[in-house]
Design a protein around this nucleic acid. Sequence first.
DNA 1: TTTATCACTTGACATTTGTCAAGCCAATTT
DNA 2: AAATTGGCTTGACAAATGTCAAGTGATAAA
Lengths: 193, 193
Amino acid sequence: MFEALLQNIGEKIALTNEETAQLKTYFTPKKLRKRQYLLQEGDVCKNLAFTEAGLLRLYSVDDKGIEHMLQFALPGWWVVDIYSFLTGEPSRFNIDALEDSELLLLSQENFEAMMAALPKMERYFRILFQNNIIAKERRLESAIAFGAEERYRQFEQAYPDFVQRIPLNLIASYLGITPETLSRIRRKLARKN
Amino acid sequence: MFEALLQNIGEKIALTNEETAQLKTYFTPKKLRKRQYLLQEGDVCKNLAFTEAGLLRLYSVDDKGIEHMLQFALPGWWVVDIYSFLTGEPSRFNIDALEDSELLLLSQENFEAMMAALPKMERYFRILFQNNIIAKERRLESAIAFGAEERYRQFEQAYPDFVQRIPLNLIASYLGITPETLSRIRRKLARKN
DNA sequence: TTTATCACTTGACATTTGTCAAGCCAATTT
DNA sequence: AAATTGGCTTGACAAATGTCAAGTGATAAA
């Protein structure tokens, strides 16, 4: 139930057995069915969510009803609308499950209690935020500096797991292109090899 | 010399006069001339840099020698290659001055000493990182969900100062379009009003 | 088992954006 | 003061990507 979370934390900081036992008390397990919402736009995002099993997506819907994938969350990944979480304002995003999933939820109250009780976790989250910034910088650079084909190649290289697990129409959206364009790119790349 | 920095910090946390005096000791002032590098690709980014006056840019250069603007820094903004700063690896980015500028530099060593001596600054930087993530999420969404014209309109709205201060060819690069396309978009928008 | 839906691909055509070249004007350098 | 460079715009054409429709096969629902 906590395997993926403890492994993720263990990669960044060392916790004693007592600390680990205490840490678990701050999290609330939650199961989602495929297509079930964790967060719906207009609601406040009240939890940080860690993915223990399954697959989630965070996306927005524009004026025309078109969905734009902004993030996927495989096991080992956190997913949250950080703006809504921090400000308490209603979110512009949706989070739902692409497969039946198991999450560990951390409310803001518990987040702060945990930080107070386990100051090592400040370091864990600072590293997490920093890694998040680095990943976003890479993705931003990809988005503005490269065409669709190169963005797909970089995506395949960075996230080989994703291409197996996630529908191509959602990957296309994540890359900012249409499914037709992605299909043509894949055909072209397949012919090159 | 520290006005913009202290104002920026004061917006997020409260420091006593003693703490403020101590804080200043961790920073090294630096002046850059227009076009002078702060960071050149291949070098390690050793400092967090706060912009007291002037204007900087952070950019990469691709295989074809084309520059891609990733960030601008007006007074009140920090600029750093966070990956290189944290890992000590050579940077893929460049930082230089678009105008004569004054910076306050914070080395990694001083960064950690300051955190130890002034734990309030953990909160300041956590808020900074969080705000950074939020801004990048907005920008990513803009990049993948909207066409060039809409991205320019959002940029104008979010950063009215930038359009006055920054050459249009650099803004075009930041938006992931060519100067010609930006020029046509501006002409079209001017005709709508 | 049958029907419906979803994911994916392909063709034909439209739109957006890029490339190249040229010209103008302001700013900078000599 | 003159020459050079940089910033910006515009025209003509090319390339990349989007849109719409149709078809196939797998998966899910009835």
